[in-house]
Design a binder for these strands. Structure first.
Length: 925
DNA sequence: TTCTGGACTTAGTACCTAATTT
DNA sequence: AAATTAGGTACTAAGTCCAGAA
């Protein structure tokens, strides 16, 4: 360590020069929690698949070295940087497992291969711990408060340059060095070799999703070569077509189309979608523009002609019926429409938890009072506190309206929809360079209360109604100026062909600009989407050298470089977002570059825990094992700082991106997320797809791979409120099956006591079945049986009545019910005595067969349950839409013969036509 | 340089509809 | 047929990144 120490010191000095600084006063920020609740705790059910672990291992071995998943380990290996001065070492590198992100969930368990080294206590414990961490709510709470506190302490660190740097560094260093340095380094050197070795060892991670996901990428990163070839073919094409088609005059474009398509599949298969299309009747646009077939366009100019109708304004406010009024301190208030509308915004949310939120309340009330001042209630009452306001009558009125709407007849509903469609029709499409393109959002956002997420300081603020005077349109010079659907004049009509927005306005709450763009299915979006993925694929070629570089820089004497390297490592390894600075008037959330002292905690020898609120105030909670140098670095970065200070005080997203850009034009931090997500998906898909499984099994594997990516990216969703309930119900269902199985066993043993010897594996009782459940279950069965007997009786009588025959007497029913009760009692008796008389025709063979079938049903139900649980808080859609190269899905679907529509919804298919056109089954990312 | 804001991508949730279950 | 649940969309908030202003 001695060695080390000096280094650091020096680093510090060096850098002192530039200081970033920043930090705004944290004054009052509090951290949000937001959803915190969910994140909490549940222990994850990893338990189920036992076999899986094993499986993974094997697979790993089979893989060509090159691709081995590096699971986890990546971190370690990389360390290779050579120069390690450090100590010899002792420890083996532990894998980092990292990746998974999921905030709450995962931990990494990576065990490293060799388990052994004296070192840690971990293995098992680890896992546990991790869970604990995640789980507990308290943790979250804690973090929050902490954040708040820290905010208060406005610490600016910048000056540290001099000071902190050297001196502090010293002390730290020494410390760290002693620890860290001694431990590690050595192993790293091997990198590849190491990786390869490791892989096999890996195992372990039993359920750790995280380990899995992260691991997926190859250790070395180098993915594929071959791609060029693949690509080549992708290029195929359907034809020249689009243009031609267009030309076809009336002749039915349909025909033309059909043709094109047929041609395309070399096999000559015709695509069905074609057929479908025709019905749409968009003859005009039917010849879809296949931009991917066209030559690249330089990009500086997005269009030559642009025609559209602007935005559609919502209807004017319609005052409530006379009798519906809010009350203030007991008396009803007659509000002018202007203030009544605002009151209504709040009233409509009465049952949401926004109304319980202090920030939301005060922002709303401030704005409500403002409008009341201008449009006071007729009663002349002054509204002074929110507590005295009673919006219930309004709320109830809205509920009633909803009911009314729901109970309308089909025809009425149809009519309404028809009217709405007619109104919207003119706004659905724009004509871009002569082609019809669908718009995304064409509606002016309606007024309402701003629903900021997390602890957004402005949540609850009134968002104003837009008027034409607020909107700027962007249309072609020769395009006719559209007329707003409400009175007024557009703020401005411009003609800027360098941008893709059609309309724009400034929103009053956050003073941000809102735009109207084309939809995701448009060629503009499609093009940029495709180039995003191409860029990510390009990164494949550079990632090895980038990793090598940042691993080396991890020991740089220049603090700024060391921070940059460390941050990049986290971005690459954990798929963190870049993390731009945010303002006082926004929720306090962070990304990599904006991580603060309190967001990262260290636990020697090499575990790092991240706990912070990221985009949308989603919590990111993850503990990972990192290479020693990373651990050491974080320790240094935290030294001499306190809550509220930036962890990477010499780094900004700008610096990082500029640096990345030198490796590859266009490279920025977010590309790593795209790359890692798609890469992970490809790896997981390879690993999980059961080549000879059923379609359903393949789809399940696909979803599992998708889920791994979602976890990596920390894409969450709130757990449905009734999840616990429905999950419990599923559990009962499983147990009901077990109950049946139990009865089968008893029957078998009753039939022939010797059967027990012959089938010793059937001797054990079903797990998870206590008397309590069984009693409940039997009571349940009884109730159901009685119920259905009654129904049946009524039904029969009804029939008799119709047939004009005599009805059966009630006593019949009563008798039947009595019988049922008796039967049910029998069930209880059977259970207690463990004797079940065999039904007619029962044989040992048949019973065994039934038991086997029951086992299968139980297994299916169980895995289904496990799946549900694993996915309850993971959002798969986001990664599918934004991060996973759609060509991977298309290629996989073709290769394994899974209908694409089972994987992509209609809108996704419309979004990714280029992927369908270009990826054949051999396509690789 | 740093700061600001413009333009565009990424994100979760509210709600609507179709598919199932009861 | 009604009640749930699952799936998909619409909506709009919240990021990223870059360029031009200060």
């Amino acid at each position: 360590m001695a060695v080390v120490a000096p280094d650091l010191t020096s680093d510090l000095n060096v850098q002192a020069a530039h200081v970033p600084v920043t930090v705004d006063s944290p004054a009052g920020k509090t951290n949000g929690t937001s959803t915190g609740a969910n994140g909490t705790g549940h222990a994850h059910t990893n338990g189920n698949g036992n076999g899986s672990v094993k499986k993974e291992e094997e697979e790993d071995e089979e893989m060509p070295l090159a691709r081995k998943p590096a699971q986890t380990k990546r971190a370690v290996n990389s360390g290779s940087s050579s120069e390690e001065d450090e100590r010899p070492l002792a420890k083996k590198p532990r894998g980092s497992g990292g990746g998974g992100a999921g905030g709450r969930r995962r931990i990494v368990d990576s065990e490293s291969e060799e388990e052994d080294v004296p070192v840690k206590k971990e293995k098992k414990p680890l896992a546990k711990k991790a869970n604990g961490t995640n789980g507990d709510t308290s943790a979250s709470t804690k973090s929050k408060s902490a954040a708040a506190a820290k905010a208060a302490a406005a610490k600016k660190r910048r000056e540290d340059e001099e000071e902190s740097d050297s001196p502090s560094s010293e002390s730290d260093l020494s410390e760290s060095s002693s620890e860290a340095s001694s431990e590690d380094e050595k192993p790293l050197a091997k990198k590849k070799g190491a990786a390869a070795k490791k892989a096999p060892a890996k195992k372990a991670a039993a359920g750790s999703a995280s380990a899995k996901s992260s691991g997926s990428r190859s250790a070395t990163g180098t993915p594929r070569k071959g791609m060029a070839a693949a690509k080549a073919n992708g290029g195929v094409k359907k034809e020249e077509g689009s243009s031609e088609e267009d030309e076809v005059p009336l002749a039915k474009s349909a025909k033309g189309k059909g043709k094109g398509k047929a041609v395309d599949g070399k096999g000559g298969k015709v695509k069905k979608e074609k057929v479908k299309k025709e019905e749409d009747g968009d003859e005009a646009e039917d010849g879809k523009y296949q931009w991917w077939e066209d030559a690249e366009n330089d990009g500086s100019t997005k269009w030559k002609t642009l025609v559209h109708n602007g935005v559609l304004f919502p209807p004017a406010y319609i005052p409530l019926p006379k009798g519906v009024k809010m009350r203030y301190d007991g008396t009803s208030l007659t509000l002018p429409p202007e203030s009544e509308e605002v009151a209504g915004f709040w009233a409509a949310m009465l049952e949401t938890d926004h109304v319980q939120d202090a920030t939301f309340q005060s922002n709303f009330f401030r704005d409500f009072q403002t409008i009341l001042k201008k449009y006071p209630p007729r009663e002349g009452i002054k509204v002074e506190t929110l507590e005295k306001c009673d919006f219930r009558p309004m709320f109830e009125h809205f509920e009633k309206e909803k009911e009314k709407k729901k109970s309308m007849t089909k025809d009425e509903k149809k009519q309404i929809k028809a009217d709405r469609d007619a109104l919207e029709a003119p706004y659905l499409y724009a004509i871009v360079d002569g082609r019809k393109e669908k718009l995304g959002n064409f509606r002016a956002e309606p007024p309402g209360l701003f629903r900021g997420r997390g602890e957004h300081p402005r949540k609850g603020t009134l968002k104003f109604r837009l008027r034409p005077e607020d909107i700027t349109l962007n249309i072609g010079t020769d395009a006719p100026a559209p007329k707003p659907n409400i009175p007024g004049k557009w703020k401005l009509i411009k003609h800027d062909p360098t941008v893709t927005w059609l309309a724009e306005w400034k929103e009053n709450v956050n003073n941000s600009t809102k735009y109207v763009f084309l939809s995701a299915a448009s060629s503009w979006k499609g093009q940029s989407d495709r180039s995003k993925f191409e860029k990510a694929r390009q990164l494949i070629k550079h990632v090895d050298s980038i990793r090598k570089t940042y691993n080396a820089d991890m020991k740089s004497k220049v603090m700024a470089d060391r921070q940059r390297a460390t941050a990049l490592y986290f971005i690459d390894e954990l798929a963190l977002r870049a993390g731009n600075e945010k303002g006082e008037d926004e929720a306090d959330t962070v990304g990599c570059c904006s991580l603060r002292y309190e967001h990262v905690t260290l636990e020697p020898p090499n575990r790092v825990t991240f706990d912070f609120l990221g985009k949308d105030s989603m919590r990111f909670l993850n503990t990972v094992e990192v290479q020693p140098q990373v651990f050491k670095n974080v320790k240094i970065f935290k030294a001499d700082k306190e809550k509220g200070d930036q962890l990477f005080d010499r780094l900004t997203t700008g610096i990082l991106n500029k640096y990345l850009n030198d490796f590859m034009p266009g490279l920025s931090a977010k590309v790593f997320r795209t790359y890692n997500a798609s890469w992970t998906f490809q790896q997981q898909l390879r690993k999980l797809t059961p080549a000879d499984g059923s379609v359903a099994e393949k789809i399940a594997a696909y979803n599992d791979a998708n889920r791994d990516v979602a976890i990596l990216c920390n894409h969450q969703k709130t757990v449905a409120k009734n999840f616990a309930e429905s999950f419990a119900k599923m559990g009962d269902k499983v147990r009901a099956l077990k109950y049946q199985r139990m009865k089968l066993r008893f029957q078998l043993f009753t039939l022939d006591p010797k059967a027990k010897k012959r089938n010793p594996e059937l001797a054990d009782d079903e797990s998870d079945m206590d008397d309590d459940f069984m009693e409940r279950h039997e009571a349940d069965l009884l109730e159901k049986a009685l119920e259905s007997a009654k129904k049946k009786f009524e039904r029969e009588n009804l029939k008799l009545e119709e047939a004009k025959e005599d009805k059966k007497p009630k006593t019949d029913l009563e008798e039947r019910l009595k019988e049922i009760k008796k039967e049910m009692k029998e069930l209880t008796k059977e259970r207690k005595s463990k004797k079940v008389e065999s039904r007619k025709g029962a044989t040992e063979e048949k019973l065994l067969d039934q038991i086997t079938k029951m086992d299968a049903r139980i297994a299916v139900a169980k895995t289904q349950m496990g799946d549900r649980d694993k996915t309850k808080d993971v959002a798969l859609g986001t990664s599918k839409i934004n991060y996973i190269d759609p060509r991977l899905t298309v290629a996989w679907a073709k290769k394994f013969d899974v209908p694409l529509e089972k994987l992509f919804s209609k809108t996704l298919r419309e979004k990714f036509p280029w992927a369908e056109a270009e990826a054949d089954e051999d396509w690789v990312f």
